[in-house]
Amino acid sequence: MKFKIALAQIAPQLGDQKANIQKHVQALERAAAAGVQLIVFPELSLTGYTLKDLTPDMALDPDVASPLQQIAAHSGGLSAVVGFVEQAKDFKFYNSVAFLEDKAVRHVHRKVYLPTYGMFDEKRFFAAGDLVRVADTHFGKLGFLICEDIWHFSTAYLLAHQGALMIVASMAGPGRGVRGMDSALGSAVSWEVLTRTVAQFNTVYVVAVNRVGFEDGVNFFGGSLLVDPYGNVVARGKTLDEDLVIAEVDFDLVRRARAQVPLLRDENIELTMRELERISRDRFELPFLEDPKKKSRASKTKVQINSRRQKSKRKTGKR
């Protein structure tokens, strides 16, 4: 499968959905004219990033007629990934992306990892998503992530093992680091290392679309990237300025990369799960509650005893 992708590196206007719908429609039209089939917008592309208390005011229910439907209506034959504030039925607000196809919302990914440290304050305003799922699309299986999500290796891993051929990351990445990095911005260097690593070690395409523009003095650096499954950068957006990068994706490269380096085939998911279960159990053991007499016993032994006990309970049906 070969198709043209557009990396819509826009500068959304903070808290002005009308203006942002226009920006989306313009980019869609330009992309359509260039024969693009999939267009990707940045994180919170419909609203801007530094929303704070504007978050609930900007929230949309993706099932209700909304700016997302307006954009979908203009999408023609294109599939599009749009960033928005999602209002769930229980009135939680999520930092989400919608995947639009055939003029309708086909999939929503809710940002799982909400950075709340240093300059970031997302957990104060958003609920965290709890699903990492691929979507079936006209292009095959795609996995969607939002900015900080991809900094956690587990998310790309989960998507790759569900069959994602491409990981689509929408970003609002602030530009920082102007010292001692040759000519590149520190955060741009980090993003390139990260996306290339994720692509190469999961043998998937990675497309990371970052926004540009300033919000309250913070710049978003752009530099959007399309990386092939070998970890090569095949297309790159401008630094700091708006851009519409159009490039070709060829999923035959995924086949060839995986034939050459069958990392996904050889991955021992069961081993990983066993070890993760153990790690998960161990990290919730409270050492200060342990009986001091038993302190010398290795925790491993204890876990084995516990799990045997549980098994026997299950067998006998005693609870």
């Binding site: 530009g175 010292r179 001692g180």
Partner: peptide
């Protein structure tokens, strides 16, 4: 000493900062 400043990049960012924030 502090690592060398990437002055070109600083100019690119700060000039955009001025025009962008002023316009807004």
């Amino acid at each position: 000493a502090l690592p060398e400043l990437n002055a070109k990049l600083v100019v690119e960012i700060t000039t955009r900062f001025l025009s962008d924030e002023l316009r807004k």
